[in-house]
Computed example of a mutant assay.
Amino acid sequence: MKTILVPYDFSEEAGYAFEFAKGLAEKTKNKLELFHVIELPTPQSFNSYGEVGAFSSEGTQIFMIELIEKRKKQMAALEESLKNEPYKFETKIVFGNPFAGITKEIIEAKADIVVMGSKGSSGLEEVLIGSNTEKVVRNASCPVITIKSAVLPKDIHKVVFASDFNEVPEEVIKRLKAAIETIDAELHLVKINTPSMFEGSRASMEKINDFLRDYKIKASSTTVYNSATEEDGILEYADDIDADMIAMSTHGRTGFLHLLSGSIAEDVVNAAKRPVWTMKAKK
């Protein structure tokens, strides 16, 4: 059975993702798993005088015990409320680092798609730390849909797939086509032209037409769109046609190379107000 995985932290955005995922599960009858990670305090922390700090205190231990019990009850209540749905619903709680926990669960649950809430981020915090959502988008072995507001699959009518159409991995297209068919949406293709990465319209359209032919894709429109940056162009074009979702492939780079080149997909995930479907291109 295929699995829809929802990392859940009880935030408003996670609630939006959960509702979207329930809509997907109703359509596909796939299993839906709600996954929660409880971060434990560091085993030892020290104040300025070198004394052992918070984790050793009785108050902190009581707080963590109460939090764990609260989360267990909340998850049990959700399981009870969805026990009669036409799809299988499960919950799981683990302890540790959220990103590491989600990454491990994607593999162990053999997740086919991750639906994840996101607040987005910008500026220095994004460069130095990044969000758990951004990390999952960059590293997940399956497609990820990021959600920032209340939306359901039935609300998705237009999907923009942005690419340079040079080397789009077949697995990405296979998963994208499956997603489009599931939500019954129109597909609109766009190639963004920028001053630093300019390409003539004729050459760009030839690549798009080759893409359509090679992958036997039906698109409602194909466009070459000019903008200052790829990120701006994707967001502007999605606004222009009133798209309901953006779809992209991401390269999964990390570290210094990631900081130098950036990831357009991650930038779009952070900046976009509408849902974004991404999948990492395997090397």
Rank of each mutant, 00 (worst) to 15 (best):
L212N: 04
S131E: 07
I246H: 08
I102F: 00
T254H: 10
L32Y: 08
A111W: 00
A150F: 07
N139F: 12
F20P: 01
F99W: 01
S263L: 03
P143G: 02
L212I: 13
N226Y: 11
E51I: 12
C142N: 09
T133R: 09
T42S: 13
I147A: 12
K135S: 02
I102P: 00
A203M: 08
K177A: 13
S141Y: 03
S131C: 02
T42V: 14
S249L: 03
L24N: 02
L176N: 13
N97I: 10
G130A: 07
S263P: 04
L260H: 06
Q61D: 04
E167R: 13
A203P: 06
S122Q: 12
S201L: 05
A178F: 11
A228G: 10
D244Q: 09
Y215W: 12
S45F: 14
V168M: 08
S81C: 07
L124H: 03
I62A: 05
Q61F: 01
A54L: 13
L34F: 08
F95T: 03
V52K: 07
T222W: 05
K110P: 08
D244I: 15
M64D: 01
N209G: 00
E51L: 14
A228L: 10
F256P: 07
R71C: 04
E90K: 06
G15D: 14
I217N: 14
I38C: 06
F63R: 02
E167S: 11
L176W: 02
